[in-house]
Design a protein around this nucleic acid. Sequence first.
DNA 1: TTGTAAGCGTTATCAT
DNA 2: ATGATAACGCTTACAA
Lengths: 344, 344
Amino acid sequence: MADEVRTGVPRRGPTISDVASRAGVDRAVVSRILNDDPRLRIKPSTRERVLAVVAELGYQPNAAARSLRTARTRTIALLVPDFENPAYGQIIKGAETAATKADSALLTASMELGEESFEHYAKQLGNGRVDGLLLAGGGITGTREEHLDRLGPPWLCVNRTGPGKRRYVVLDDERATELAVSHLLELGHTRVAFLSGPADSDTAERRRLGYIAAMEAANLDPGFVAHGDYTADGGAAGMQQILAAKRRHTAVLVANVASAVGALYAARQAGVHVPDDMSVISIHDLSIAAFLDPPLTTVRMSLSGLGARAVDLLLTRPRNEEIREVLEQPIDLIIRESTAPPRR
Amino acid sequence: MADEVRTGVPRRGPTISDVASRAGVDRAVVSRILNDDPRLRIKPSTRERVLAVVAELGYQPNAAARSLRTARTRTIALLVPDFENPAYGQIIKGAETAATKADSALLTASMELGEESFEHYAKQLGNGRVDGLLLAGGGITGTREEHLDRLGPPWLCVNRTGPGKRRYVVLDDERATELAVSHLLELGHTRVAFLSGPADSDTAERRRLGYIAAMEAANLDPGFVAHGDYTADGGAAGMQQILAAKRRHTAVLVANVASAVGALYAARQAGVHVPDDMSVISIHDLSIAAFLDPPLTTVRMSLSGLGARAVDLLLTRPRNEEIREVLEQPIDLIIRESTAPPRR
DNA sequence: TTGTAAGCGTTATCAT
DNA sequence: ATGATAACGCTTACAA
């Protein structure tokens, strides 16, 4: 088991009893003052006295005792697949802000989904550690849903429509891809390829659907679809496929910025000039996009808004209620220098 | 205060009493079995019976009750300035792995250091919520140290030598910059500029020192020093300063990858070709570096190793012991295409 | 306007 | 080889 390490006595701070006796009142009074009990009628003078003692001692209610008593922890957990992807950074930020507003802490952990790692999360997140669970990114298969349910706390998928598809919030990926495609079409492109995410990712799938819908709406044949894995490496490989495809394309819609970084790299390596030979546009706008070569045209959706909304839903909706929400929010085209009319 | 939201009754799982009665033993027995109490002599048959019930009910010990009793939470917190910076992502990963090994959870939060936000952390991290606190990144000034101490849990600075400088782990930034400079010098450069981080960051300062030491050791005058802020924006601005400086430089050492992204961008904008007109090398190696234009030569240090070491130190060292550790680990030069001999 | 007391689920120290 | 019991610090219904 754990190497029991003694790192000195875990110091405990002053307790509510310390405050009470020092202020000459009962613990109950202190508790109710600190929790703004609306039913409490109390002499202003004693209230002040108590508050003074609280400040003097630097009293902090013990979180463990409190949540043992109330069965609420005021913390929620957010599991992300990859801390190195700045896109998750944005989701985290939004979630954190929302959690803070709701007076809760946000516990973030990365998940590499293996069956055994579920064991681990059970231990870390089970009974009495968190009030709820947010799962960003994929891999929530059927059996895992059961595991999750058995864990106890209510959970919600973020930007994934889990398989049971009962509780999730997603961005409007279809609308985003349609916006991207229409930008390309307005520039005059007709042969547009799509560089997707992992085949089992449903954000990737929704983006692919949006792409196809937009192409067909314009009476155009959808182009080549390459599958990346949402990393720069995968993006580079996907771009190579697209460049090697029989049909020559004049534009590529890339499913996320990390892939786009790789795609631009692969184009450079192949001597294909962006945007003169090939336009590139990406879903999501990260700060790095502006500094790429060339600066990347993107479709901006608020990932932080997504994180925030997820927290709100988790905290306010009853634990078994269905939640199937496609976030309505502004989706903006950020035109930089990676898109241009096709050269004829 | 918080909008009291009722999201249904917080469900509690089975308790240790449920297990005990069902298995026909006392709670104490269950507890000691589950905690591998070495002093426990017990009939294998009853142990198995208990374990079976545990599995059957899916019993999970209640974390709140446990830490109320033991005064240990088995979670530590890591505060980072910016989740969008992949460098912190690496630190987080390392920390998480180490925490998991020590059977603890890692709670990550971002900090924007204002005086009031300390209030917030006091509430979230105070008494009984975490066993310790890791502070990555800067801004821990004197008065804040006191705040932190009053918070209760032991804390440790990661990659920052806080001002009291009593407890920290840092990477060997001086050695890293020396390695970078010597690479440049071996290529034949003599006029090397330094694109630093924020003036008040001590990693930036240590890197600057390493740079100056390495230049002087080679009997060369240190070149222009520009201050960025560890973002691409700041890096671009810094590079502009360097390009505008009176003295012409043939190489720039950049203090981190985010700045380097901006620096490469600014060079492109100015029509300065990297590496023909100007070599660029950066401290830290992030996965994006390989895909920049040109692929960026870097000095690799293990950020995840840093995170892991920080966790270990926090967990094993007595709470008031001084910790001043410069991490000894391999530091490697990753040569890509942004450095070359100066053109004459 | 304030106090009393029960109980949240666990672990540790005794007994037996 | 197992059981009884107190204690951890807090909140809340009820009593005074």
